[in-house]
Each structure stands twice: as C-alpha cells, then as structure tokens.
C-alpha cells in the first residue's frame, strides 16, 4: 500500500461494508425469509434469479459481491489483528462492541468462505441450488449451529458497522446522537437476526 493512502483505504472499507455488502446481506436474508412460507415459496423466489442472463449475473456477482466483499474481508482482518483488545480493563458496551466487531469479522471470513464453497461453488460444479440443498446442509445439527452463529455474526457486524459508519463519516457527532444510533442499530440487529434465524430453522 502506497504512502498516505491509509485514510482512503479505511474510508473505502467503511463505505463498502454498507454499500454494497450490507445491502446485499439485507437482500440475501430477505430472500431466505421466503423459506418460512415453505419449499415452494422459497424455490419460486430463488428461481427468479435464474431469469437473469447468466453472463450478467456473473458480472453482478463479481462487481456487487465478491470484489467489495473480499476487500472488506481482507482489509478487515488486517484491522482486527492490529487491535489490542482490553475489555477486561474497560468493560464498557462500546469497547465490547469494538471487540465483537473484530471477532465476528474474523469468524465471518471463515463462515462465508465455507458458505460460498457449500453453495455457489457446488452450483458451479453442477449442483442445483434449491430448498433441498439447504435442507440437506442443516440436517446436521452442527451445520445448523454453525449457520445460526454465522447469521448472528453477520447481522451484528452489519448493525454495529452502521453505527461505526455514522461516526466515521461524521454524521453522528454528539454523544446523544451516537447513543440514539446505538439503540437504532441494535433494533436493526434484532430484526435482521429474527429474519435470518427464522429462515434457517425453516429448512429443518
């Protein structure tokens, strides 16, 4: 990384976490939520994706998902490992959120890599992505647990990331506005978690 570019990389990291990665997560969890309505509803909703021309879908996947996600993930790992956590000495909510943001981030790199391998790469190798695929995956209680932890990590990381974004870009400045942003983002965490977990358990 060239000299004096760190500010730009960090701001880019903050921005990409919301747009497009955060938006994609909300879209992804919403689509999954159709599984609550049963196998047909889920297959119908995901089948919509097949209507997009394959070449365009590939370009969109790389531009909207893989490239921003990889930058956010790998730069994020670097940020996480330069921190010296001290929640034992400063056990405030914010310091715990700081630590959890880094812990969930590291876990998500592993989880998402596995998730992509288990679904997208299997699709590229000829498997069909549908309700049955997910039902087979979460038939194992270990996998179900792994997915639930992954979903909760993602929803926390996004919700708390929105809080960080608002500070890092200078939108919430006063302690009061930052406090209200904490409440709002924790509500977002709760809602997204309910949506995400309700979807995964409906495959069981």
């Amino acid at each position: 990384m060239s000299k004096d570019r760190e500010f730009l990389w960090r701001r880019l990291h903050s921005l990409l976490g919301i747009i497009p990665v955060g938006l994609f997560l909300v879209f992804h969890l919403s689509l999954n939520f159709t599984a609550v309505g049963g196998e047909d509803a889920y297959n119908g909703a995901t089948g919509m994706m097949e209507l997009v021309p394959h070449a365009l879908l590939l370009v969109m996947e790389w531009v909207i998902i893989y490239i921003p996600l990889m930058f956010h993930a790998f730069y994020g790992v670097y940020i996480a490992f330069t921190a010296t956590n001290n929640t034992s000495r400063f056990s405030t909510f914010r310091n715990w959120a700081f630590r959890l943001q880094r812990m969930t981030g590291i876990f998500l790199v592993v989880f998402i890599a596995w998730h992509i391998f288990q679904t997208r790469i299997q699709k590229a190798l000829g498997a069909e992505v549908n309700y049955d695929m997910m039902a087979e995956i979460v038939a194992s209680p270990w996998m179900l647990g792994f997915y639930i932890v992954g979903i909760l990590s993602a929803t926390f990381h996004l919700a708390n990331g929105i809080w960080g974004f608002l500070v890092s870009w200078g939108i919430t400045q006063s302690p009061k506005s930052q406090q209200i942003a904490t409440y709002v983002t924790m509500v977002i965490f709760a809602i997204l978690s309910i949506v995400g977990v309700a979807a995964i358990v409906s495959f069981v």
Partner: peptide
C-alpha cells in the same frame, strides 16, 4: 497514515 481513520470507536 496512522491518522484519524485508524480510530476504531471503542470510546
């Protein structure tokens, strides 16, 4: 480098 953006908001 090493400036403002390196704040992680642990407060």
């Amino acid at each position: 480098d090493g400036g403002l953006a390196n704040c992680g908001n642990s407060q």
